[in-house]
């Protein structure tokens, strides 16, 4: 295991310290070392946006703390939910007096810790409402969507909720926008090589050389099929064939497209994939209005890629285009 670390047991602390040094213009520490807030948060009169999750997905989750995005983030151990206390402290750090929207991904630990933190917040009068991302198509059948995991679609949910909050919307409107964004979003991942948690020291699963795992999750959760690696063109077609019928997306739809590397895949290959994705979407009569390509939501050193599609309406189109400034995602007003 060749890694740039000091001590496998302190990778999260060490990374957060570097992050705070590097991005002091955008983010600030809080009394809880596992909670980071937007420098200008909380803003009185605005709904606060909170997320949180395990570490190892950088720039998620902390990289989306910024203007027009997330106000405070709870940071967990690698691939492990933050504590209820950290979620609760993040709520407090984001609270501008109009309630807090907690927008997070559907995992057992996160569900429990958020539930406890929300209960605790309500005991001292802070209203927190939640949206749980479940955009990962292969993680459960369509009739069991509540069991699906949240993956890179969470970024578009934060973008929608963060932009709506920045417009000064009330909590229920922010929640409605974030919920609509995730309801209109579908994702799929393909894994080509496993990842290694530094403290464990060995890969947490295996993918044989020359094989790919279709539908892999963000922590190496098994997908729906293990197949020989195919050309990028065929991977793109396979991803579209899985994702498009699920919503379903169709002719005339306007889309946001997000392609994220899983950590160890060269950015170049994301563009090779995108070329065919765009071709396939255009051939089906869909228009791509927002494009995000890069390492947006990773899984340590996993090799592979995720595709996320969001079907836009007028509101979501406006929210995707709204200005935002964070390490992970920046949009500048045209």
């Amino acid at each position: 295991m060749n890694r740039i670390i000091n001590d496998p047991d302190s990778v999260v602390e060490d990374a957060v310290r570097g992050w705070l040094r590097a991005h002091a213009d955008m983010v600030a520490p809080t009394d809880n070392p596992r909670v980071i807030r937007r420098r200008r948060a909380p803003e009185p009169g605005r709904v606060g946006i909170v997320t949180g999750g395990g570490s190892g997905h950088e720039p998620a989750f902390l990289g989306y703390v910024g203007d027009g995005m997330v106000d405070a983030v709870a940071i967990g151990e690698i691939f492990s939910s933050p504590t209820a206390r950290s979620f609760h402290d993040a709520f407090a750090a984001a609270d501008g007096g109009r309630g807090v929207a907690c927008l997070y991904g559907n995992y057992a630990g996160d569900n429990m810790n958020v539930k406890m933190a929300v209960r605790q917040a309500s005991q001292h009068g802070l209203e927190v409402r939640t949206v749980v991302a479940n955009d990962d198509v292969p993680s459960a059948p369509a009739d069991d969507r509540a069991r699906r995991r949240g993956v890179a679609g969470e970024i578009l949910m934060w973008k929608a909720g963060g932009a709506r909050a920045a417009e000064g919307a009330a909590l229920e409107q922010v929640i409605a926008a974030a919920q609509k964004a995730i309801d209109q979003t579908r994702s799929i991942g393909i894994g080509l090589a496993p990842c290694t948690i530094p403290a464990v020291g060995k890969p947490n699963f295996t993918i044989a050389d020359g094989m790919m795992e279709v539908g892999i999750g963000h922590h190496g959760e098994p997908g729906i099929a293990v197949e020989p690696v195919r050309p990028a063109r065929a991977m793109a077609d396979l991803m579209l064939d899985t994702v498009l019928p699920d919503l379903p997306f169709g002719r005339g739809d306007d889309l946001a497209v997000l392609i994220s590397g899983l950590g160890a895949t060269p950015i170049m290959e994301l563009y090779i994939l995108y070329d065919r994705i765009a071709e396939g979407l255009e051939a089906r009569g869909m228009a791509i209005r927002h494009i995000f390509i890069g390492n947006y939501f990773t899984s340590l050193d996993m090799m592979g890629v995720t595709l996320t599609l969001l079907r836009l309406d007028g509101e979501l189109d406006r929210l995707m285009a709204a200005p935002a400034r964070s390490v992970g995602l920046t949009r500048i007003a045209p």
Binding site: G54, G76, E77, S80, S81, P82, T83, A84, R85, S86, A108, G109, M112, N113, M116
Partner: peptide, 15 residues
């Protein structure tokens, strides 16, 4: 346990 361990075990055993 609630404050110091995240994941699922912190909240479950904490509770």
């Amino acid at each position: 346990l609630l404050g110091g361990i995240g994941g699922s075990m912190g909240p479950l055993y904490g509770t």
